[in-house]
Amino acid sequence: MTIEVNGKSLETDEEGYLSNLNDWEKDVASVMAEAEDITLGDDHWEIINFLREYYEEYQIAPAVRVLTKAVAKKLGKDKGNSKYLYELFPYGPGKQACKFAGLPKPTGCV
């Protein structure tokens, strides 16, 4: 599978996760979000950027429980909770936000 971003054709796996992490740019997230009927706002970007930093540091996409805890630690409890994160990413902050951030599907995700 591929997605079209700024005239470039980027390869993804069958679930829509980018095959090559280095292909990511901000518009990748926007195009993916649009296809899933989400308009990305500052709150979304905060989580997407958080995930990219997490990946840079630990080389994995965190499971949702781990993400929630890490967000709580960095951005506070009003953001580090399932309700807040699921409102931003209804298909799951693990699966959906990682996809938008250009990361692989979280380990342990079924």
């Binding site: 540091e57 630990y58 080389q59 994995i60 781990v66 805890k69 890490a70």
Partner: peptide, 14 residues
Amino acid sequence: TKNFSKIYSALEGY
């Protein structure tokens, strides 16, 4: 190769 040694530091979060 991927520097998976960084993953050990993520274990605490898990």
